[in-house]
Amino acid sequence: MLLKGKKAIPSDRKQQESEYREMVNRIKPKPPLLRNILGAFVIGGAICTLGQALINFYLSFGLDKTGAGAAASATLIFLAALLTGLGIYDSIAKYAGAGTIVPITGFANSIVAPALEYRREGMVFGVGQKMFTLAGPVLIFGFVTAWIAGLIAYILK
């Protein structure tokens, strides 16, 4: 039997689709889970350890806890931005996966990468507009949920 066009025979089609999906699943390679987990753990952990070292470094300069935390974040963000600009961050990410996405450096990368990518489309419609293609949703959902948390705190006060 030939494969049917999309809307040819609906009931037959459902079965054909599920049969095919099974066939695909049998053959599809799985991601190298153990290697990926190890990469994410080691590199993600290393970034956090660097963050801890930076916090301690700024604390030793007499900054308070909040200040040292903010300074450490800004430093990590700068380093991630620089590595993205140099084209190194995505090479590390190949091995680290979520290890380079989940830390604050991943947020920085998600802002710098499109800014860099679209500069050829100009400063306003390129860099300016595209900078938040990935970070925009993060800020939107972050702000809205935080606002709700604040609202609840206000009501419960």
């Binding site: 190298p32 996966g97 996405i101 990468a113």
Partner: peptide
């Protein structure tokens, strides 16, 4: 890549497929 997926410098892992 930049049209269909992510910016080229974005750190992403590619699926084995």
């Amino acid at each position: 890549e930049r049209q269909y997926r992510f910016p080229t410098e974005m750190g992403v892992q590619r699926a084995p497929t």
